[in-house]
């Protein structure tokens, strides 16, 4: 969805900002648009709305625009924004909240591959309790249908013995699965 300026007066709706403050404890209402977050963000140029605009959109109650944005998926939680914010706003923590909500609502995501990678990674932990790169990357390649990118790098790593063939499993795997049941599965309906 494009966010376009219109001649309609902007009506501020505080309910979305309040929901985020309540859920994350991050005081998004403290933002005064200094843009320090955006200036330090290593991926701002790949976002449809840079971090400072995310704060403004929250302020405007533009929930749909944010939940379907590229921005929330491009954020890699480097926390540079939070480290430099003069008002101690943890923007990256807000991104976590927005990604979780977009996924729970099943919103069509413009960065499907990033979402898929997080899901495949999490589900790999659910299967073994630890990450097994070979099965995780295989699942990602199959589900994303992105078969050929980085095959050279993957092969190099494999030949250097850096991608073990066999997974090692956690003994208390039932405990790990129970954690998933009470968190991830409950929110996303247990689909994996």
């Amino acid at each position: 969805m494009d966010y376009q300026l219109t001649n309609q007066p902007v009506r501020q709706d505080p309910s979305f900002a309040n929901e985020i403050i309540e859920a994350t404890g991050v005081r998004v209402d403290r933002c005064y648009q200094c843009m320090t977050c955006t200036l330090g963000c290593p991926v701002a140029d790949a976002m449809d709305f840079p971090p400072n605009q995310v704060m403004r959109l929250i302020d405007l109650g533009a929930e749909e625009i944010l939940l379907s944005s590229r921005t929330i998926w491009m954020c890699v939680t480097c926390e540079t924004c939070f480290a430099r914010c003069p008002n101690q706003i943890d923007t990256a923590a807000v991104m976590d909240y927005l990604r979780e909500k977009a996924t729970a609502k099943g919103i069509a995501v413009p960065e499907e591959r990033i979402q898929l990678l997080h899901q495949v990674f999490a589900e790999n932990i659910k299967s073994f309790g630890k990450v097994h790169e070979a099965t995780m990357l295989m699942a990602y390649k199959l589900k994303s249908k992105d078969f050929f990118s980085d095959m050279g790098i993957g092969l190099k790593l494999f030949l250097k013995g850096k991608i073990p063939l066999f997974p090692s499993k956690v003994k208390g795997l039932d405990e790990v699965k129970r954690i998933f049941e009470k968190t991830y599965d409950q929110t996303f309906g247990g689909k994996s």
Partner: peptide
């Protein structure tokens, strides 16, 4: 018997899992 810490993926998609 430690498990994966969740890395970036867990908190990126589910905060409580992370």
């Amino acid at each position: 018997d430690w498990n994966c810490c969740g890395a970036a993926a867990a908190h990126s998609i589910h905060r409580k899992l992370g």
